[in-house]
Nucleic acid binder design. Structure first.
Lengths: 145, 145
DNA sequence: TATTGTTATACTCTATAACTATA
DNA sequence: TATAGTTATAGAGTATAACAATA
């Protein structure tokens, strides 16, 4: 039993999942570092690409991050040539975030790399275990899929 | 499918588990706030209680936190009367962390509260799903249990 | 000289609230 | 006046390295 070599809390499922989340975030960070992009930036980029009509405010709402944080992230993405701001003609207060061709290529490459890293990380789980974890996490998070 | 209402990354198991970990950390924070203690402090306290002979350095190693951070945590625990530092007679450089009776009572109450909060949080999972998630997380983290 | 605990420092991240420009 | 984006500021958290006491 691990309780003598680690925290007694590691017998709690919630504690394990907190640690697992931290480990997976670190894995994402390492994996995406090969493409000079951080997880949050990659998340913003893929979401903007999937929903090209979103304003910064809507993007911030969808991703659950503060609008002022998004400013810096999009600054970085613009500087790297991965996305660009475009004023909405109908409401000139709004900035619609457009992903460049370079940004889309990075999404493709990054997604493949992250999926491969995940597959390796979860290699000790069989197909059924992995499906259960995936579905259970989705249900607990209130995702419809 | 959730992809149109959230990040496309939410189809990745790793992304879901990162978000799940964040949600569970927030749940632990809210639950333990009733006892005026934070998750990290509770973790240090329970580990020190389970292994009374550990020095601060060993405690830091076991919990994977920096020794300088542990200083502040133990300061807080001492101030709250939950633990106390005791110099090791055999090596006067070392501080062994002793948990007080009050600290042990808090461990009992806090553990019950956290377990109850978890049980409710995982209520939508059946017994087998929950067992699979628990075991899978343990295996991925390299726990022996 | 090496190690334990502590302190000091700087850096990152985040949260809040002003500020501008548009509506 | 209200909202979108931006900027400024302060606070929390963390990481690194210097430091005093002990080995």
């Amino acid at each position: 039993m691990a309780a003598s070599a680690a925290s007694p809390l590691s017998e709690l499922t919630g504690y394990r999942l907190i640690k697992l989340g931290e480990a997976l975030f670190a894995l994402a960070e390492r994996t995406l570092a090969d493409f000079d992009i951080r997880p949050r930036h990659f998340n913003v980029l893929t979401t903007a690409a999937a929903q090209p009509s979103l304003s910064q405010r809507q993007l911030a709402d969808v991703l659950g991050i503060d609008p002022n944080v998004l400013v810096g992230v999009i600054d970085d993405l613009e500087r790297a040539g991965l996305a660009s701001r475009q004023r909405s003609p109908s409401d000139r207060r709004r900035h619609v975030v457009a992903v460049t061709a370079s940004g889309k290529r990075l999404i493709d490459k990054g997604s493949r790399a992250v999926a491969a890293a995940e597959k390796q990380y979860f290699a000790t789980l069989n197909a059924q275990e992995r499906a259960t974890v995936h579905a259970a996490a989705g249900r607990l998070l209130g995702l419809s899929g």
